[in-house]
C-alpha cells in the first residue's frame, strides 16, 4: 500500500530506491536514464542541504529556547514535587522521628557512585520495626536480636556491559550496608539489588 504512495519516476523507478543508493555509483540504467540522472542530481542536492542544515541548526545560537525556560520548568517540578514517602524510625511521647525515602535513596545512590560499573536507578525502602509485629507485619521478622528499626531496601540498577555482575552486586551491597548506618544511624537488614538493564561503556 505504502509503496504505491512512493513517487515513481517516468521510468518506473521509486524515488526511495534512488535515495537509498545515492552514495553509490549510478547503475547502468541510472547513467543512461535522463529522469534518473535529473532525480539523482536533485536528491544529491537535497542530501547535501539536509546535512548542512542539520549541522547549522545544531550550532545556531538563535535556535535555542530562551535561557529562562529551564527555571520555568524546574519551578513547576519543584512546586509539584511528589511528596516522598516518610519512614517512621521511632515514636515515643517525647516525639516522632521520621526520614524521607528520598533522603535514604540519595544516601544509597551516593554510596553506589563509589562502585564502578553500576548506575543506581529506582529505589524503594520499607522499614521493619523489631517490636512485636504491628498489624500487617510479616511474622517471620520477629525475634531479631538488634534493637531499633531496620530497613528493607529494594534497589534497581543498570550494570556496565561486561562486568562481573555477582561480584559487583556484592560489593555494592556491602557499600550500602555500611553507608546506611553511618549516614542514617539505622541498620539495613535486607538489601535487594535487581540488575534491570545493561549500559554500554
Amino acid at each position: 500500500m505504502a509503496l504505491e504512495d512512493i513517487p515513481l519516476l517516468g521510468c518506473g523507478r521509486h524515488i526511495d530506491q534512488l535515495w537509498a543508493t545515492l552514495h553509490q555509483p549510478p547503475t547502468t540504467h541510472e547513467q543512461q536514464c535522463e529522469q534518473c540522472k535529473m532525480a539523482r542530481t536533485s536528491l544529491q542536492r537535497l542530501s547535501e542541504a539536509t546535512r548542512s542544515l542539520r549541522e547549522q541548526d545544531l550550532n545556531d545560537p538563535a535556535l535555542k529556547p530562551r535561557p529562562g525556560i529551564t527555571n520555568a520548568i524546574m519551578d513547576v517540578a519543584r512546586a509539584e514535587i511528589r511528596r516522598s514517602k516518610r519512614i517512621i524510625l521511632g515514636s515515643t511521647e517525647e516525639g516522632t522521628t521520621e526520614i524521607s525515602e528520598q533522603a535514604l535513596s540519595a544516601l544509597i545512590r551516593l554510596a553506589a557512585t563509589a562502585i564502578p560499573g553500576v548506575h543506581s536507578r529506582r529505589c524503594h525502602i520499607e522499614v521493619r520495626s523489631s517490636d512485636p509485629s504491628p498489624a500487617g507485619e510479616d511474622p517471620r521478622s520477629r525475634g531479631t536480636a538488634d534493637a531499633g528499626p531496620h530497613l528493607i531496601i529494594n534497589l534497581r540498577v543498570a550494570a556496565a556491559a561486561g562486568i562481573d555482575i555477582p561480584r559487583t552486586v556484592q560489593t555494592l551491597r556491602q557499600e550500602i550496608s555500611s553507608a546506611i548506618p553511618a549516614g542514617a544511624g539505622i541498620r539495613a537488614e535486607i538489601i535487594n539489588i535487581t540488575v534491570e538493564d545493561l549500559y554500554d561503556v
Binding site: 516518610r86 511521647e93 517525647e94 516525639g95 516522632t96 522521628t97 521520621e98 526520614i99 524521607s100 528520598q102 533522603a103 535514604l104 540519595a106 544516601l107 551516593l110 557512585t113 563509589a114 549516614g183 542514617a184
Partner: peptide
Amino acid sequence: GPVDISILAIEHHHGTTHA
C-alpha cells in the same frame, strides 16, 4: 511536649567533596 523530627535530606557538608 513532643518534638517531632523529619529528616528530609542527608548530604555532604557544603565544601566537602563527594566520595
